[in-house]
């Protein structure tokens, strides 16, 4: 049961039903792949291209998550309905995002403007340009009482 070659185990991972005990080396290999992916996602930002950073960061996160879910959590041999309702939970979050983003992510729209958020963005960008003018410690103390600021 446990003596089949690791390569065969990788290939046959979704094939066998009753018998899915892989030898430890199978999991160690996947772990190795995960660490390699992690290295790529850390190196990604060092190249300095924003799109590439996002792609390495999130694309690799998705790949890693897929590997962990399918191989470690054994979703690859789980009943289909489990995968369906986990996917539905993810889809709900997409619905949530698309329902909320027009109001929260954007700071203006049809006949409205989020004045407070726009002012905060302007303030923040200004602060980022001149970091020395706002002492970081001083600001944090100030920020502890948001209601008192205005």
């Amino acid at each position: 049961m446990t003596s089949h070659a690791p390569a065969a185990a990788v290939d046959g991972a979704h094939a066998h039903e009753g018998e899915h005990i892989h030898p430890p080396i199978y999991y160690v290999k996947i772990w190795g792949v995960l660490l390699a992916l992690l290295t790529v996602s850390i190196i990604g930002p060092m190249i300095g291209i924003k799109i590439l950073t996002l792609m390495t960061a999130f694309g690799i996160a998705v790949v890693k998550a897929y590997l962990v879910c399918s191989k470690f959590m054994h979703l690859n041999i789980e009943k289909k309905f489990v995968i369906y309702f986990l996917t539905i939970a993810l889809c709900l979050m997409a619905i949530f995002y698309f329902g909320v983003a027009p109001d929260v992510m954007k700071h203006d729209g049809a006949n409205w403007r989020n004045v407070g958020a726009q002012a905060e963005v302007a303030r923040g960008l200004e602060r980022a340009k001149h970091p020395e003018e706002h002492g970081e410690h001083g600001h944090s103390e100030h920020g502890a009482k948001p209601a008192g600021e205005h």
Binding site: L86, A89, L90, L92, M93, F96, Y97, V100, A101, V104, M105, K106, H107, A117, E120, V121, R123, G124, L125, R127, A128, P131
Partner: peptide, 23 residues
């Protein structure tokens, strides 16, 4: 998934809407 999803979606929306957070 929906607990973390709710929090992370809120974060992502704010992160995109607030370019100054990059700093």
């Amino acid at each position: 998934i929906v607990i973390f999803g709710g929090l992370l979606m809120s974060y992502i929306m704010h992160r995109i809407g607030h370019p100054e957070w990059a700093a």
